[in-house]
Design a binder for these strands. Structure first.
Length: 567
RNA sequence: UGGGGUGUCGUCAAGUGGUAAGACACGGGCCUUUGGAGCCCGCAUUCGGAGGUUCGAAUCCUCCCACCCCAGCCA
């Protein structure tokens, strides 16, 4: 079957309903066969993930199959690099197309034969009009087009010309093969569409074998037909093309898949078109397709999103026909939900503040026990070293705390997670700037492990790290790529890049993490307690130098309280 | 102003003539050695609008309005 066992059955949607009905009516002898048909001209993004999950999970649900097929009909835009990345991404998402890896270019010979068949049937003709002329003859949305003077060429002449097009006798763009349909159709796709063009470009798979290439519209439906696809699921913009695909299939008298269209995914605070994504990459706004701020699969992977969380997201957003923008908060929620269960807990201080425990013996080091997960005891425990000099988070100490601030302040006692209660007794400031550079505390030896035998409570628990033992690390904090939910949508013709978030990346280079993280594997994911989920960057972590990408922060109630207080 | 689509909570989205699921977000409470997690509660008298049919309409009919897609030898 070729499908990874994923979540429970995804929720129903109109496409599944249609297929269920078809099955009930024994259409296609009860066979369900889908396909994911990317063009290898860019990297996959989360919108593609929606299509991938839909096609593969439908196949799984109805005991069918799902093919991977590259729609590689335009050699000027397509590259090997892209097909490799696409395969990697689909695999990483957890899907398996087994031996059904196909290319539209596999069908070039067959497609050529189909074209010949159309010519012989008087349903296609070679047109000598230039591109500009074809555009003129096409008419407009409100005005019908007019027939090409070459429309009435006899079949034998068309056949001869088409053969010679293939043989390379004519210049690029000098002639074209067109379907003979209806120049006055209200559907522009039916106004004698071009189905073959002369194009001398080296194809990444067929090399220089061809100098004519079929158009997508002449390729897609027939490729589905050849593969026996029962349900061709695609996005809304192809709804207008369906009559054309139907026309080809009917004229050619070949197996007729059923096309069903759904709305593509839009996510708030990002962009999803390959064109825009490519622009961000080319102009260096993003460091590459796999920049962790990108909505690409490779970007999300590098950011630390587990594939399970993406699949779950795709199940939850539903499938429908209306244009919509899904709140990116749902994606983030899916990551938190999965990671909360699976990510080992660890302590890391992002913006260190030095803490000296005055009454702790100078050279003493204790190895304290810390569970790797608050509820899943199966994840075991680890030792964390504690000593006289520690680092805590700068924001966890305030000399003059506002109302509802529970953390450390002069004279106040808090708990260091898995360690001791400490009380702040002194503050050292920079004489020039007045900035707090170090604080002094005392600890209560009787609170080892974090509980006071006398039952006294503290209002907060802080994460920490032993200065002498901590590892230095770089941490990259990410925020939404754009400051607008729908970038570039405010005013007409506005450049979407005007809405870029200037603070989408914050790099922290002097973070301290607990020593147990030494040798953490690239791609491994942790929760830094009280901070968020982090993933070891597999590109920039090298040798002993660890670089962490923040996947998502934890929900931050304190931040919300602060926001409310400001208002 | 041609054709094809779509309009249900802040955001997604079920619902297909029997009286508005669910999720995220948001608000409140409980609990807590992560201000995390978890648990509980609240959150559309109303389905783009106006008429009509019906005992009964988000669902059927009529008209209107808004938004999206199409004039590549791109996919």
């Amino acid at each position: 079957m070729g499908i990874v066992k994923t979540n429970a059955a995804p929720p129903p949607n109109f496409i599944r309903n249609i297929i269920a009905e078809d099955l009930k009516a024994n259409k296609n002898e009860g066979r369900v066969h889908t396909r994911f048909p990317p063009e290898p001209n860019g990297y996959l993004h989360i919108g593609h993930a929606k299509a991938i999950c839909l096609n593969f999970s439908i196949a799984a649900e109805f005991d069918g199959m799902c093919n991977l097929r590259f729609d590689d009909t335009n050699p000027t835009k397509e590259e090997e690099e892209y097909t490799e990345s696409i395969k990697e991404d689909v695999r990483w998402l957890g899907f398996d197309w087994e031996d059904r890896e196909f290319y539209a270019s596999d069908y070039f010979e067959q497609l050529y034969e189909y074209a010949v068949q159309l010519i012989k049937d008087g349903k296609a003709y070679v047109c000598d009009l230039s591109a500009d002329e074809i555009r003129e003859y096409r008419g407009t949305l409100t005005k019908p087009g007019k027939d090409s003077p070459y429309r009435t060429r006899p079949a034998e002449e068309n056949l001869d010309l088409f053969t010679r097009m293939r043989a390379g006798e004519f210049e690029d763009g000098s002639r074209v093969l067109r379907a003979k349909i209806d120049m006055s159709s209200s559907n522009l796709n039916m106004r004698d569409p071009v189905i073959y063009r002369i194009l001398r470009a080296t194809h990444h798979r067929t090399s220089d074998k061809w100098c004519i290439y079929p158009m997508y519209d002449f390729t897609h439906g027939q490729s589905d037909s050849i593969e026996g696809i029962t349900h061709s699921i695609c996005t809304l913009e192809f709804e207008d093309h369906r009559p054309l695909y139907d026309w080809f299939l009917d004229e050619l008298k070949i197996f007729h898949p059923q096309q069903i269209e759904f709305a593509r995914l839009n996510l708030s605070y990002t962009v999803m078109s390959k064109r825009k994504l490519l622009e961000l990459v080319r102009q260096g706004v993003a460091t590459g397709w796999d920049d962790p701020r990108m909505p690409t699969i490779s970007g999300l992977r590098r950011r630390g999103y587990p594939p399970e969380s993406i699949r779950n997201f795709c199940d939850r957003i539903g499938v429908a026909k209306r244009d919509s923008i899904v709140d990116i908060a749902l994606l983030e929620h899916c990551a938190r939900e999965y990671l909360n269960e699976r990510a080992p807990r660890v302590m890391g201080v992002l913006r260190p503040l030095r803490v000296v425990i005055d009454n702790y013996p100078e050279n003493q080091v204790e190895e304290l026990d810390a569970p790797n997960h608050p509820t899943d005891t199966g994840m075991g425990t680890r030792k964390v070293p504690f000593s006289r000099v520690l680092y805590i988070e700068q924001e966890d100490f305030l000399e003059d705390p506002p109302k509802k601030y529970y953390r450390l302040a002069p004279g106040r006692e808090v708990r260091l997670r898995y360690a001791y209660f400490i009380k702040c007794v002194d503050v050292v400031k920079d004489e020039q700037t007045g900035e707090v550079v170090e604080i002094h505390c005392t600890y209560d030896p009787k609170t080892r492990g974090g509980d006071a035998p006398d039952g006294r409570k503290v209002k907060s628990t802080l994460h920490w790290v032993s200065a002498a033992h901590a590892l230095k690390a770089e941490v990259r904090l990410y925020d939404h790529l754009f400051i607008k939910a729908n970038p570039g949508a405010e005013k007409d013709g506005a450049d979407f890049k005007a809405d870029l978030n200037p603070h989408s990346l914050e790099t922290l280079t002097s973070c301290y993490i607990e020593p147990g993280l030494a040798g953490a594997l690239p791609g491994s994911r942790y929760q830094f307690e009280r901070q968020g989920y982090f993933c070891v960057d597999h590109v920039d972590s090298s040798g002993g130098a660890l670089v962490f990408n923040r996947t998502v922060s934890l929900r931050d109630t304190w931040a919300r309280i602060q926001k409310a207080q400001k208002r």
